[in-house]
Simulated scan of single mutants.
Amino acid sequence: MVSHRRSTPSGLNRTVRITVLSTAAATAAATLGAAPASADPQDTHEATKARVDRLYGEAEKATERYNAAGEKVGRLRGEVTRAQDAAARGQENINRMRTALGSLAGAQYRTGGIDPSIALLLSSDPDTFLDRAATLDRLSARRTAELHKLQGAQRAVAQTRAEATRSLAGLESGRAALVRHKRTVEGKLAQARELLNSLPDEERETLDRASRSGRDEPVPALSDRAPGSGRAMAALTAARHALGLPYVWGANGPGGFDCSGLMQWAYAQAGISLPRTSQAQRYAGRMVPLSEARPGDLVAYRADASHIGMYAGNGQVIHAPYPGAPVRYDPVGMMPVSSVTRL
């Protein structure tokens, strides 16, 4: 007789279900920072915030490498253009020298094609012949000098072309570096966005507002002094006009900025040309202690100066924080300060 009782799930089926559920739970935990189920929500929030900050920091470092590569490409592009122009001018000069030497050789051949001693015996006017012989000697000396000049010009053009070739090779290498750093930046930012999007809306908004400005590293007492110079005041005024504009990595205005791009643009409005990267900007002037910071001074962050802002007084900096956050004020101690530079 056939039994119609419902069969009891086998141990294997239960194991499969448990495995699937465990895998799903582990995936969810990994998305939210791999926090255990018993973790305090605040702990999860802090872990997520730390990961987002780290990703933004890594993206900033890659952005500054991208900016440095872009600056190098621009310099090499100028070197290639100048070398090619110089080589073209040099070749034109060589062509003129060759033409002049050809004319000189032809004239010398026409007037000096007979042995001078025989020409003297046959000459009906020895004095005139001697004058012509002296002229031929001068022409020969001139021809020798012109040949030396031609050889020197040819060597110079060859060297210029070699320099152009090296600059072209560097240009191609720089372009490859630009692509590589761009991919790194985009990858880091995509990871940060994915992590933020995994959070509930309210928590995501809180995290975005708190990032960077949510911390305040210990700083010495700051005395509110006047800007170091009129140009520093002009740069600070320009930076204030940029408040609210978006962070755009690799941009230096006027519609968007990354951190070093904002500093470069602001000081350009004051008539001062700054390097493109935050690492180079920190050495663009005289370093001063943080306790003596004045409005308009550049404040570099982290040991590698991968972030930079402008001191605005009252313990605040103006800076372009990260993608999604506009140019804004934040506490000067939002991250570890590595240097303060006065221009």
Rank of each mutant, 00 (worst) to 15 (best):
M334N: 11
S260A: 07
A312Q: 06
R328N: 08
K72N: 10
A86F: 01
A83F: 10
W265K: 06
R240K: 14
G333S: 10
E292A: 15
L120I: 05
Q279I: 01
L199Q: 15
S7N: 07
D258P: 02
P336S: 14
Q269T: 08
V52H: 00
A270G: 07
V73E: 08
R209F: 06
G70W: 06
A133P: 03
G102N: 13
A26V: 13
G261H: 11
I308W: 01
A305H: 12
D53N: 13
S306F: 01
G324Q: 00
E146K: 12
F257H: 01
L147H: 14
P321V: 04
P200V: 04
L343A: 08
Y283S: 14
M97L: 15
A312R: 04
S211W: 03
L236C: 08
T237R: 08
S223T: 14
I118H: 12
R110Q: 15
L21C: 11
L76A: 13
R17F: 11
E60N: 09
W265Q: 10
A39Y: 03
A176E: 13
V340H: 08
S338P: 07
R110T: 13
V52L: 03
Q269P: 09
W249G: 05
P227T: 07
R75H: 14
R161A: 11
L189R: 00
D43W: 01
V179M: 05
P246Q: 01
A251Y: 14
D53H: 10
R54K: 14
A164K: 06
V288D: 06
L189T: 01
L245R: 10
V337I: 15
Y56I: 04
V2W: 09
A107T: 08
P275D: 02
A47I: 12
R54Q: 14
V327L: 02
A133W: 11
R328D: 03
P275V: 02
R65D: 12
A303E: 10
T111V: 07
L12W: 11
M310S: 07
L150K: 10
P323F: 00
G78R: 05
T81P: 03
R215D: 10
G309I: 00
P41Q: 12
R240L: 06
T237A: 13
A141M: 09
A280P: 06
I318Y: 10
A119C: 12
D330R: 00
E292P: 05
A83S: 15
G90D: 06
S124M: 04
E71C: 04
R342Q: 13
A190G: 07
R14L: 15
L122R: 15
E64G: 08
